[in-house]
Amino acid sequence: MIVAVCLVDVLAPPDVHLGPLLVGAPALTAAFSGPRTTALIGALAVAGQVAIGLARGTLGTENLLAQIAALILVSALIVLFCVVRERSRHQLDQSRTVAHAVQEVLLPPLPERSGPLRMSSLYLAAQDEASLGGDLYAAARTDDSTRLLIADVRGKGLAAISHAALLLGAFRAASHRRPTLPRLAVHLDGAMRWDSRQWQAEEAPDTDEAFATALLIDIPDREDVVRVVSCGHPAPVLFAQGRADTLAAETVAPPLGLGGLTGATAYAVASFPFRPGDTLLLHTDGVLEARDADGAFFPLSARAAVWARDEASAQGVTAPDDLLARLRDDLLAHTRGRLGDDTAAVAISREEL
């Protein structure tokens, strides 16, 4: 660009001056390069302006000197902009690194195997720069079973992350003591209520109640069954023999953190068959509430039925990784890549022990 402007300016008639176009060279460079390269191109542009003055014999005129001074000033401002941008980009990269490290600590990927189970997890953040929100999942291994938690904490931002971390820690600490699922739910409910109220004055009303919908799952190694306690959470989907069925529990308890509002809460355990070759899909409400451009919700039941038929026609087992990949692709296609809420999902398949 610098060479072209200089040649055209020198060959043009005396009353045509294209030298001011040289300012576009450092401006364009700043769009795709750093401050050093931009400064170099700015210096070459100034040299080109000087070369035009020498070729035309107008180097000492006030007009050309003013053009050179303006080009130097604008190039310096563009380089300064590049320096500020690079610092901001570096800070953003550091923030992303920290956020990724926090996610790895709070929400690490589930182990691929646990006894006779194969597991896979998926997390989709609604915000482009976010990597963790109020959706969470965790797994814990006992002597003869695998326990899982999937939950969705009310709210967003740092408060939701704080409550999510609390639930994850309480679940991991309590699961290894092998309490029953109802006792585990009571423990998690108490942890949520204690955390949200410990700093409130006794006379002050609860103005910011913290709660989380949750599913507690227990899958024994030697029994073809899955046990579920639902605390206001979307029901899981079971893929078995070419079908996709929603495992809706008859009794649904209040979300964790709200168990004390109506007195003692009875956490009922629902049991469903879970045989070798079956796959269980757990998910948060970000899946069900994902909307397309027309405002229509994501049709999980219909899409799950299609996935199940496809696997049955291929005479294959619905693998956890493949199931979550199809869920992710269909969700992003339905919403055109713009999720309205964070989304978490866990897929578990049983193999022969």
Rank of each mutant, 00 (worst) to 15 (best):
R275Q: 10
D329I: 14
V269G: 07
V98N: 01
D206R: 10
W194K: 01
L106Y: 08
T61S: 15
R328A: 11
P236F: 05
T251C: 13
A45G: 13
L280N: 01
G263N: 04
E311Y: 03
L136K: 05
A333I: 02
S120V: 04
P273C: 10
L215K: 01
A76C: 07
H187S: 13
A185G: 10
L288M: 00
T265W: 12
P234K: 00
P273E: 01
A302M: 10
V16G: 02
F211V: 06
A130R: 05
E311D: 09
D128L: 07
P182K: 05
G134S: 06
L110V: 15
R89W: 12
A235T: 09
A325P: 09
L110H: 08
P205D: 06
P236M: 00
E250V: 15
S313A: 13
T37V: 14
W307G: 00
S313G: 08
A308D: 00
A69T: 15
G277F: 08
E209L: 11
V317T: 12
G257L: 03
L21T: 04
R56T: 14
M119K: 02
E202H: 05
D342M: 04
V237E: 02
L117M: 09
D342G: 07
T146W: 00
H187W: 07
G157F: 13
L256P: 05
P220M: 06
T142S: 14
D342Q: 12
I219F: 06
E289A: 01
Q91C: 03
A214T: 04
E129N: 12
S120Y: 08
R36W: 09
A45N: 04
E202N: 07
D189R: 01
S75G: 14
D278N: 15
V23S: 11
G42V: 15
L77E: 06
D294K: 10
E250M: 02
T180A: 15
N63H: 13
D144S: 10
T246P: 06
A244I: 04
Q91R: 11
A244R: 00
L181P: 11
L181D: 03
L54S: 10
L281T: 02
A244D: 05
D15F: 08
F274S: 10
A138C: 04
